[in-house]
Design a protein around this nucleic acid. Sequence first.
DNA 1: TTGAAAGCGCTAACAT
DNA 2: ATGTTAGCGCTTTCAA
Lengths: 342, 342
Amino acid sequence: MSRRLNLEEIGRRAGVSRSTVSRVVNGEPNVSPQTKKRVESVVAETGFRPHAGARSLASNSTGVLGLVIPSAVATLFDDPYFGRLILGITGATNEIQMTLNLFLFGDQADDRSIIPRVVAPGLLDGVIVTATTMGNPLIEYLRGADMPFVVIGRPDESASVFSVDVDNRGGARTAALHLSGLGRKRPALIAAPSNTTAGIDRRSGFVEGVAAAGLSLDGRIREGDWTENSGRKAAEELLADRPDAVFAASDRMAVGAVRAITEAGLSCPDDVAVVSFDGLLHPDLASPRLTSIAQPVREVGERAVRLLKSVIDGTATIPESVVYPTELVVRESCGSELVEVS
Amino acid sequence: MSRRLNLEEIGRRAGVSRSTVSRVVNGEPNVSPQTKKRVESVVAETGFRPHAGARSLASNSTGVLGLVIPSAVATLFDDPYFGRLILGITGATNEIQMTLNLFLFGDQADDRSIIPRVVAPGLLDGVIVTATTMGNPLIEYLRGADMPFVVIGRPDESASVFSVDVDNRGGARTAALHLSGLGRKRPALIAAPSNTTAGIDRRSGFVEGVAAAGLSLDGRIREGDWTENSGRKAAEELLADRPDAVFAASDRMAVGAVRAITEAGLSCPDDVAVVSFDGLLHPDLASPRLTSIAQPVREVGERAVRLLKSVIDGTATIPESVVYPTELVVRESCGSELVEVS
DNA sequence: TTGAAAGCGCTAACAT
DNA sequence: ATGTTAGCGCTTTCAA
């Protein structure tokens, strides 16, 4: 007896055609108030919901956005970064009444099986690509499938795409100048992976800042993989060279660095000042609390969604790159309060 | 000239009917090797992908699973828990060639707009509901829409549903016995929110364990909201009562508690031993490193996906509750090595 | 303001 | 092994 609920059936019960029901459901004008009310009450009492697939087929739009995270390293998800990013993205997605499809790549093998599903027609209206490493093939696929997309981070190609990024370079430069301003003379760098644009930009920004301050790195550079352990190992090596300041390109690596410093019997910040990048860690999770170059991750995510939406709508047509500024948040690990007191 | 790519068009180019193309694309048997090869090469060179919406409409299945996280508190996402859970879920989802739709609730207002999209036909094949608070209305909706679903956590109703949970109660009990075994006599509890089943179970488990050890809590109970700050505040209050052991129902609250203890001039673990629940925090993120009741979050996520899949397939028909054991991971904060040394 | 009718691209039952 | 055909439920002209 309970026939499948569809426009036709709702129309039958309300005494109108399926076209009219469709108009009501989609909030189109040109429906008389009485008719509208009648249809709406039938919809309400039956709990009718239009079939998403049918809608997608007929209208060529789905109301679903995709978020692609190629996290070669599972450990990436221990990073507060992605949680925060997803929060921003889903918030903005909810706001425009769409839903979010998450594509998490594990290993290389996944690529072959996931990419097709990302570019399949009728599933997504648009895609946000994040954590791009150099030479990511996905972008070419998306372009080929003329699927609207936005990149979070700096695209590695000069090719023009829509993107949202933070000023990694400027932030890292600020870190160098801040440390120098505190009187530190022997800075060291724990860089992020050089196959990521964020890693590259933070490195070059810091190097630039060090030079601008009239100092030199003298080879005091190590590269980590974003994790605590890699930061610790990098710091252990660097300590042999007696730095009095360390800039770690992520909060997590900074935590490892601090651990290495204190375990070496040195004091942070007295002997070695530390500044990190991200500013996402809860302050209590590190002692001393980390001075950090904070990036507005949540805003980046929200902005990416809004930008993507306008690409989908055709409002935005010429590629633009939005860059958010970072902010220096001074806490304890850089030893700054000593300076302020004096 | 580039007409829309579809089964018909591929068939035309390969000299077969659209049915045959469909069979090839879906890997069905009963296709001659030559035909199959011919079709596959056309598919490959055209980059053809079947339309997801059309497929959903015709087959009544979408290949998409939904994950619902009612995170009233945005801060929830600072918790390593959800990242890890999503990792497990997407991993298993990829494995069975499906994709994951993420529904993050912000505030109450979102409910009205999100629930309909979760139960809309033609969008999802099934749903995983997590972080359920008491009296969650979503479950009733899902049941009404006869949408297959699995609950992560213990459902609050006795009503029979498919669910995957960890042994919160047993884990918390173990914490109590461990602390007592180390000679602690004045345990205290920093409980998780009592509108969550995890919060309730961890509390009752600890209370039970304390009693089993012949000790008493004497009102040394405070309730936090999972965050570092709440843990710290709870500990500050509890310290007035001179506990010699604290069980915090989450890693993050434990971090706050340790901070409160050391800032009060006391030593952890010498004066106050601490045991946490979760075991998700990187050890370096707390000093002393936290002894913890570790829960296998990733496995829970993977299992939930597999269970949901079998509900969708109709393989699983009578509701079952899977419960994973927890594991006591001893590090420094409980002062255990002192005992072992003696 | 409303209805009729033609697809959207696919699957599945049936026929051959 | 392959083709034919009839929908799936919706949107969208086009008429009325």
